[in-house]
């Protein structure tokens, strides 16, 4: 049974207010016993694999992007069977309301939410502001790991096409809007990885031709919550030049930061067709016979060859 949706003025301005919850709302839901009795499943998903263990929201279960959601043999996400098993083991049923939160302004939480959406999980929401806001507000944390009653999750085939783009999809998409969410230095080709992150071996630096540069963090305020509808409209419709109804592809380096932007475009601004290119720069930057643009200009398509 879906748990009631939060109503507030900020969320009401978004296209899909039902996709966000505030820390106050979650604290009240905890207080009411909704998490303890399984009406609401809270999931922590962090970049740091040990962070959950240092203390988490009471009743929250952990899903790790790397060990739980990836299949490192096929360089893909887990299949329907593995996802069903994972979800059930975390007390999640097909009709569960799931609230995901995590570190770093919800990068990995948004990524996990995107993977849940690949499997068509209907009611999955983000905690606005994520782990940092919850901690900053001095709210309860515990090291007690819950042992939820197993959920009832059917084996559902992953449906990638609506929200996931592969390299060939991006090649076919060229000419339509692309959002590059990496840092300015990565976009121009000055560097191929995030500042302070190790080199991951992209051979070329630059961006996909015609992509607009909107670093992911522009969508977040200082406290990690999403910016208001008005601010987001100004950034993505104003500066980046998107138009309502556009078919958009977002990408970054490995697809995690762009999940955050995917969430903002899809659920906050209401773009129907937004895909995350998870191969992102680690694939595109190394791929044979795909064009790139260096420098701050977006570049054009078709790309002039041999000049």
């Amino acid at each position: 049974m879906p748990y009631p949706v939060e109503q507030n003025e900020k969320f009401a301005a978004y296209a899909h207010p039902e996709r966000l919850v505030s820390t106050e709302w979650l604290a009240a839901a905890l207080e009411s016993g909704a998490v303890a009795n399984g009406e609401l499943v809270v999931v922590e998903s962090d970049e740091d694999v040990l962070l959950y263990e240092t203390g988490h929201i009471p009743g929250a279960v952990k899903i790790d992007w790397h060990t739980d959601l990836n299949d490192d043999v096929t360089r893909d996400y887990v299949d329907g069977e593995a996802f069903a098993e994972l979800a059930a083991s975390k007390g999640i049923s097909r009709d569960s309301t799931v609230v995901i939160y995590g570190d770093k302004s919800n990068w990995w939480a948004a990524y996990a939410l995107w993977v849940f959406t690949l499997f068509g999980h209907q009611d999955v929401r983000l905690l606005d502001g994520g782990r940092d806001k919850w901690v900053a507000e001095g709210r309860d944390l515990t090291k007690d790991k819950p042992a939820p009653a197993p959920g009832n999750y059917p084996v559902v085939e992953r449906d990638d096409a609506p929200i996931r783009a592969f390299k060939d999809d991006v090649l076919a998409h060229l000419g339509k809007p692309l959002i590059d969410v990496r840092s300015a230095e990565e976009y121009t080709g000055q560097r191929t990885h995030m500042p302070a992150y190790p080199e991951e071996g992209a051979l070329r630096g630059g961006h996909i031709p015609t992509a607009a540069s909107v670093p992911w963090a522009r969508a977040a305020a200082e406290n990690g919550t999403f910016r208001s509808r008005e601010d987001l409209d100004a950034i993505y419709l104003g500066e980046a030049g998107l138009t309502a109804g556009d078919d958009v592809v977002a990408y970054c380096r490995i697809g995690e930061r762009s999940s955050h932007t995917w969430f903002a475009l899809k659920f906050l601004l209401g773009f129907e067709s937004v895909r995350n290119y998870d191969g992102s720069w680690t694939e595109w930057g190394n791929a044979v016979r795909v064009p790139i643009v260096k420098g701050a200009e977006r570049g054009s398509f078709p790309v002039a060859v041999g000049v």
């Binding site: 740091d48 694999v49 040990l50 962070l51 263990e53 240092t54 570190d103 940092d132 901690v135």
Partner: peptide, 9 residues
């Protein structure tokens, strides 16, 4: 930082 337990480990 405490919020980077893997690095601290």
């Amino acid at each position: 930082p405490a919020e980077a337990p893997t690095t601290r480990g």
